[in-house]
Design a protein around this nucleic acid. Structure first.
Lengths: 342, 342
DNA sequence: TTGTAAGCGTTATCAC
DNA sequence: GTGATAACGCTTACAA
């Protein structure tokens, strides 16, 4: 508690007074590339340190027009996949002097709009969005922020000048999963979907169909059942599947959460995995290795995707907005991780 | 894309010009309780809406001295427990017009200090911290922010005027877990610790010992083994435990992550759970119900704890700093959730 | 190399 | 009820 707990905020002017210079000299001395007498610069710096000075971001932002802040919009941070991506974003942001404003939407349009309005008010320099469904209406709202936007695992249906994407190659990943199952000899394979209208779900489903057709099989509508991206959806999906006249011997799930719920339901219904039913997920969330049996899945480089998204955003933010040399959307590859569920 | 995508930011002055009033009238009209002619207020409001006006938080913050922003410092958002708490914080914050700045420290002191410096610069109005270990040095740094701080699941060793806590009753929770095990007839019960020096770990361990002693048993140092709060720590702990001359028949784990790793190791070592070994965790993370066997655990009201912490912070922030009617630290009770691992 | 002055978008204090 | 005017803390021409 000793000293240092000065009640009053110390400003650049206070330092100027204490160092016997003008406040603009202080500003220059504390800045990077500006020309100041090395001697006075050192003096000013030490005075600043002594007085416990911290620049006021708001004041700086007001004049520079840049906040060194980015917004991150997620459906819910309680989704393990999202959390890992955000960690990648946050780490990279901090390494480059950017601050992250987190905004959960719960997928509710109202909250999403409110969140964007708040970010607009905060004058964020960029935006990273991983909310599950990016409606056209919402994207329009986002575009009006006038700042670069990077979407993670979402298709950029409407190609604005400002929005870019980082996505896992869902088609490739889906093929990896299906080929693995097919190679294991499975012929009746089901697919459990994710949340409706999510582009990554549609692509994974597309790969599912294509893999089947490539083997001369036709996909049966009966074997594609709806999930929601959460364990309960997987549990219900299995119940539906087992009620079919001819249940599948394997199931490819939209994501690990779905697969994990399905695994548990299988256990309760005394369906041996992988003996009676093989299951593969998508994401490779950290707990996938700890369920029983450990889950075979398509690993997404989550942390790296966050880093990549933030890296793109950094580029977009420093690039002169007029220089519209369109960066290319980034696609990363998933990796098949074989564990014991197949 | 139509209209509306005005390149230039529209300010209060632009509205004033368009509405034929002074900028201060606009400010009043847009504000809540100020007296303005109802007619002009409506006119101004509609002009503002039409022009797509959004107030500049930085400018406002500069003059009011409040940023309507709070900082949330976590060790890692990839911890499911943390993520759920943060969700509670974020939801409540947004409901009250506050923005959340997220800062991950990775438990590295350097990053933690850097994070605090950044928050200081951003002039956050308050801080919520769930980083695992709050060293005295760090707390000192935090205190110098001069804003209220709420610690989650951390003891407030150093009682500053500004720091309060929200904690689960670790002792009670630990007793719940132990009593459950004891009632099931277990006599050789082990405890797997969490990260070193974490107050919640020490309290849970304290409860472990007390429960044993209350039954006239002495606790054996051999049965308390070190974990780290993550699955691998649990796995290693079980290996250590099974190497003892007389292994335990039950184990109480610092948290669910630890328990889940231990469960997996048990499976691999062909140790039947709960038959040969009962295990109970702490936290009730969402996946606890999905491992095999579903984990018996002490549920913490994570979301509510986040809400509570944010609620306290809201109080502290609006309360005149001088009015030091010390709010009391909040302690919430855990709940025993019996599943199949015991 | 340094100081003076203007201005970023608000709110707040005065007069009128 | 409304309009000047002065801050808030900073960066950035422009002068000296």
């Amino acid at each position: 508690m000793v000293a240092g707990k000065s009640e009053a905020r110390v400003s650049i002017k206070d330092i100027a007074r204490a160092a016997g210079v003008s406040h603009s000299t202080v500003s220059r001395a504390l800045g990077e590339g500006m020309l100041v007498n090395p001697a006075t610069r050192e003096r000013i710096k030490s005075v600043a340190l002594e007085m416990g000075y911290t620049p006021d971001a708001a004041a700086r932002s007001l004049v520079t027009g840049r906040s060194r802040t980015i917004g991150v919009v997620v459906a819910t941070i309680a989704d393990p996949f999202v959390a890992e991506v955000v960690q990648g974003v946050e780490t990279t942001a901090h390494d480059h002097g950017y601050t992250v404003v987190l905004s959960g939407s719960g997928s509710e349009p109202v909250r999403e709009i409110a969140a964007v309005e708040m970010l607009r008010s905060k004058r964020v320099d960029g935006l990273i969005v991983t909310a599950s469904r990016i409606g056209a209406l919402y994207l329009d709202h986002v575009e009006r922020l006038g700042v670069p936007v990077v979407l993670i695992n979402n298709h950029n249906e409407q190609s604005g000048h400002y929005t870019y994407t980082v996505t896992v190659d869902n088609h490739h990943g889906g093929l990896l999963a299906m080929d693995h199952l097919l190679e294991k000899g499975h012929r009746r394979i089901a697919y459990v979907t994710g949340p409706a209208d999510h582009s990554s779900d549609m692509e994974r489903l597309g790969a599912y169909r294509q893999a089947l057709e490539a083997r001369g099989q036709t996909w049966e509508a009966d074997l594609v059942v709806g999930g929601d991206g959460w364990p309960d959806g997987g549990r219900r999906a299995l119940e539906t599947l087992m009620a079919r006249t001819q249940p599948p011997t394997a199931v490819f799930c939209y994501n690990d959460m779905t697969a994990i719920g399905l695994l548990r339901a299988a256990h309760e219904m005394a369906i041996r995995v992988p003996g009676a039913m093989a299951v593969v997920g998508f994401d490779d969330i950290s707990l996938a290795a700890y369920v029983d049996p450990p889950l075979t899945t398509i690993a997404q480089p989550k942390f790296e995707m966050g880093q990549l998204a933030m890296g793109m955003l950094l580029n977009l933010m420093q690039t002169d907005a007029s220089m519209t040399a369109r960066l290319s959307d980034q696609v990363v590859q998933g990796r098949l991780v074989v564990r014991d569920s197949t």
